[in-house]
């Protein structure tokens, strides 16, 4: 049970830090602007079938952006404030601390879903009807878990890489496409579709859309796929972070360079 205690404590620590430095959650200020942009285009276009994309794409984009941003900086920040050695020298696993902190940020970033919804309903007066609330809520919860798992993997990957910024910059827009965030994966060329399916966000996007349609066949197994892909990311992340710890203890430095 100690690992759950460490995850919870790390989560609380991250929330406490974010309260002191609200700029860490700047995404909550920019996400409504993205939502307004998407909704304006949709309203001008007049096609109601893209309503779901217009409402929730900004939230998914914000979540992915936060994961990249966090993943790139999480372990480096610990190193910068000289807490990394203390964490490594403690009886707990660094991976549990990183995952706990990421859960907190992803959880806070999930408020962008609420912002997008409020923007659509109150500002654009659109009828956003969630036909299957259970599917929607479960999708949100499992997607947040998968996002946290993937961000944990990115945290390990980025600290082992020589060029974090290059990674971060190249993993934004292409992944919005691969994740089916901007347009459904089914509209992509057939050869690209298998690639998208190893990325959990493509399943999450489909599920969000399905929750707003009258028919939502096969949602349970699609949720399971998101959970499995998220868990794979988490396990991969914990393995990578363990490698970081081994590197630090072997070389005295976490950096590859």
């Amino acid at each position: 049970m100690n690992i759950l205690r460490v995850i919870a404590a790390s989560c609380r620590m991250q929330v406490a830090e974010t309260r002191r430095v609200p700029a860490q959650m700047l995404i909550l200020a920019t996400s409504p602007l993205f939502a307004a942009m998407f909704l304006s285009v949709m309203k001008r276009n007049g096609d109601p079938t893209v309503l779901t994309n217009a409402v929730f794409a900004p939230a998914l984009i914000s979540l992915w952006f936060m994961s990249l941003d966090l993943g790139g900086g999480m372990i480096s920040n610990e190193r910068w404030q000289a807490t990394l050695e203390g964490l490594i020298g403690s009886p707990s696993r660094l991976g549990a601390v990183v995952f706990g902190r990421i859960i907190a940020v992803v959880g806070l970033a999930a408020l962008t879903f609420v912002e997008s919804y409020v923007m659509a309903r109150l500002v654009f007066r659109m009828d956003v009807r969630i036909v299957h609330p259970l599917v929607f809520v479960l999708t949100l919860v499992v997607t947040l878990f998968a996002m946290a798992g993937t961000a944990t993997a990115l945290a390990g990957l980025f600290v082992l890489s020589r060029n974090v910024l290059l990674f971060q910059n190249s993993m934004t827009y292409p992944f919005y496409i691969l994740g089916g965030v901007l347009v459904p994966v089914s509209l992509l060329p057939f050869w690209a579709q298998p690639v998208t399916r190893v990325f959990f966000l493509s399943w999450s996007s489909d599920l969000v859309r399905a929750s707003m349609r009258t028919d939502a066949p096969g949602w349970a197994w699609q949720l399971a796929v998101v959970a499995v892909l998220g868990a794979a990311g988490l396990v991969g992340g914990l393995v990578l972070i363990e490698r970081v710890v081994r590197r630090v203890t072997a070389t005295g430095s976490a950096a590859m360079a």
Binding site: R5, V6, A8, A9, S10, R12, M13, A16, E17, R20, V21, Q81, A82, T83, E85, G86, L87, S90, P91, S92, V97
Partner: peptide, 19 residues
């Protein structure tokens, strides 16, 4: 350095206690 400077003394110690 070596502590979480932006949070309270108590929060720091509670965090390390969990670890």
């Amino acid at each position: 350095r070596g502590l979480y400077a932006r949070v309270s003394v108590r929060r720091n110690l509670l965090f390390w206690a969990s670890l």
